[in-house]
Simulated scan of single mutants.
Amino acid sequence: MQTILDKAATRGHANHGWLNSYHTFSFAGYQNPARVHFGALRVLNDDTVAGGMGFGTHPHDNMEIISIPLNGTLEHKDSAGNHGIIRSGDVQVMSAGTGIAHSEKNHSSSEPVQFLQIWVFPNKRNVTPRYDQQSFRAEDRRNKFQQVLSPNPDDAGVWIHQDAWFHLADLDAGFTTDYQLKKSGNGVYVFVLEGEAAVAGHQLSRRDGLGIWDTNTLQIQAATATRLLLMEVPMAL
């Protein structure tokens, strides 16, 4: 087993007033050659957008883009005619493929929205752009892994063009569990949304990230009530 620890305080940070963003991996003005990506996981941004503000229309191509609201509501519009509003408990995915332009803004004029913006390199280039969003029940991740993303349209959660699986988990203090990787050669990036946990021998706190590879399983023990996002991705591009 190999690991790489990214403490919350070491992330890149940009505060534009309307946008307060923390970057686990190199992004925009934060460029760190040692932290460009974890396997196929390219971007993990922890964004807070002020009421009435947002990202204007801008293009993407050949990237799988996932948005996970933590608080508030986020509004999406794109050049393919898709329009969606997502809130805590929802997961949104956009396969940029051959090219698509979209905007993301805070749906509320007064309350901030906090969300994770995640990019994953696809395993197929120049696919037809697509959009999807789904809602997930909080009770279905209590002391277990709730699958919210996979490579299979017929499996639980949204799907992307990559052999990746995302899970959310809400663990009680003292609860211990094991995560079994879905595919040999993949790694897992564990991101602590809230709480504290011991993962693969590391003590993690809020917004810490831990990349783990060269293993088929990993153990997680929650020290407090803890919410986790596990992102299993291929390590080879």
Rank of each mutant, 00 (worst) to 15 (best):
W119Q: 10
M235R: 00
Y179R: 13
D47Y: 02
G12T: 01
R207K: 14
W213Y: 10
N15E: 12
F136Q: 09
S110F: 11
M53P: 06
V127H: 06
E111Y: 13
D172G: 00
Q221T: 10
S150P: 06
L168Y: 12
L210K: 12
T177P: 05
T57Q: 06
H107R: 14
T217P: 04
S103I: 09
H16A: 07
R125I: 13
H37Q: 10
I4A: 13
G84L: 15
Q180F: 15
A80S: 05
R130K: 08
D163A: 09
P153Y: 03
S103G: 11
V93P: 01
H37N: 14
R11G: 00
I66G: 02
V93L: 03
L74H: 09
G56P: 05
Q146G: 05
T98I: 00
V36Y: 01
P129H: 05
L41H: 07
V190T: 09
L5N: 13
Q146S: 03
F145Y: 06
G201H: 05
H167Q: 08
L149F: 09
S103T: 13
L210D: 13
W119G: 09
N15V: 03
H16N: 07
I220T: 12
Q2A: 08
A34Q: 15
W213T: 14
R142I: 07
G84M: 15
F121R: 12
T224A: 00
T98F: 02
I100M: 02
S135A: 14
P122C: 03
F145D: 05
P234M: 02
G185D: 01
P69M: 11
H167Y: 11
G39R: 06
Q219W: 13
R227L: 10
A8S: 15
S150M: 06
A28E: 13
Q146Y: 04
I212A: 12
R137N: 11
Q92K: 05
A223E: 15
T10E: 04
L171I: 00
T226E: 06
L168E: 09
E194I: 03
H58P: 01
R206W: 10
G187I: 02
L204W: 08
A198V: 15
V158Q: 11
H37E: 11
Y131A: 06
G187Y: 00
W159H: 15
H76P: 02
T3A: 08
R141S: 04
G81D: 01
H83G: 09
N106S: 04
V91G: 01
F191H: 14
T3P: 05
I66N: 07
V192H: 12
V93E: 07
A50R: 02
F175K: 04
H107M: 05
D6R: 15
L5A: 13
L181A: 08
A80F: 08
L5D: 15
L44W: 04
H76K: 04
G29A: 15
Q114V: 15
V49D: 01
